Each structure stands twice: as C-alpha cells, then as structure tokens.
Lab assay of single mutants.
Amino acid sequence: KKIKIDLKKGPEGLGFTVVTRDSSIHGPGPIFVKNILPKGAAIKDGRLQSGDRILEVNGRDVTGRTQEELVAMLRSTKQGETASLVIAR
C-alpha cells in the first residue's frame, strides 16, 4: 500500500532516521524508516512508522539512490517548507 505523507519541517527537523537494507554490488538496496524521533515533524503528524519503505521524496523516485543521497534530499528541505514523501507499508 502506498501512502503520501507531507511533513512540514520545523525547528526540530523532520524527526526520523533511515536505514538501507540488502545493498549489493548491483547498487543500494531499498531505504526504510528506522526510527521516529521523540521530537520533529514525523511524531507530530503521526502517520510515518518505523519499517516504512521510502519510495519518493518531493516527487523524485529514490529507487537506486544511496542512503546519503536520500538524506541530502531531505536536508535540502528548509525549515518551514514541506517534505513530500511517498512510502510503502
């Protein structure tokens, strides 16, 4: 099931960490939400869960991207702006 979640970045950030699983010589594996932090946009919104697979960030497919690339995409969202995620659960 795909779910679109918009998180408005506040002073505590987006409020979640990510982890890559099953990376191989063929490229990075899928990226999942690792933890929801006690402060930040994710816990206020309440929909994002540990174990959700991140498919898109701000309309860009993240398949084949590294964890570092995904984190850079999320960090490029400025405070007060919205990060738009599509996740699979």
Rank of each mutant, 00 (worst) to 15 (best):
G40S: 05
L48S: 00
P30V: 07
G10E: 15
I36K: 01
L37E: 15
D22M: 15
G59K: 07
R75V: 12
I36A: 01
V19C: 14
G15D: 01
L70K: 03
E81D: 12
A41G: 08
G29V: 11
S24L: 08
D52G: 00
S84T: 11
V86C: 13
V71D: 15
V19Y: 15
T77V: 13
K2R: 02
I25W: 03
K78H: 11
M73V: 07
K8W: 11
K39V: 11
Q49Y: 11
T17Y: 02
A88M: 15
S50D: 15
P28E: 12
R75Q: 01
P30T: 04
M73I: 04
R89E: 04
I25D: 14
I43G: 06
L85C: 04
L48M: 08
I5W: 00
K4F: 15
Q67V: 04
R21T: 14
A41N: 09
T63A: 05
G51F: 11
P28A: 13
K34H: 10
A72C: 14
G46N: 10
E69M: 10
A72Q: 05
V86P: 01
G13W: 01
G29A: 08
I3E: 05
V86K: 11
L70M: 11
I54V: 11
D61Q: 10
E69S: 11
I43Q: 08
G15S: 00
L74Y: 03
N58T: 03
E68R: 04
K39A: 13
T20Q: 11
Q49R: 07
F32Q: 13
F32P: 02
D45G: 07
L14C: 03
E68V: 03
K39G: 05
I87Y: 01
I25T: 05
I87T: 05
V33F: 01
G29W: 10
A88Y: 15
E81V: 08
P30C: 03
E68W: 03
T17C: 08
G15V: 00
M73H: 15
D61M: 05
G27F: 07
M73E: 03
E56Y: 12
G51K: 06
V18P: 05
P30H: 11
G27M: 11
G27L: 10
G51R: 05
V86W: 07
S23H: 12
A42P: 02
L74S: 03
K44M: 14
M73W: 09
R47P: 02
N35M: 13
R21V: 13
A42C: 04
G64C: 06
G59T: 05
E56P: 00
E68D: 15
K9M: 15
I25V: 06
K78V: 08
G10M: 15
N58D: 10
S50K: 12
E56S: 12
D45H: 02
L70S: 03
A41D: 12
T82Q: 14
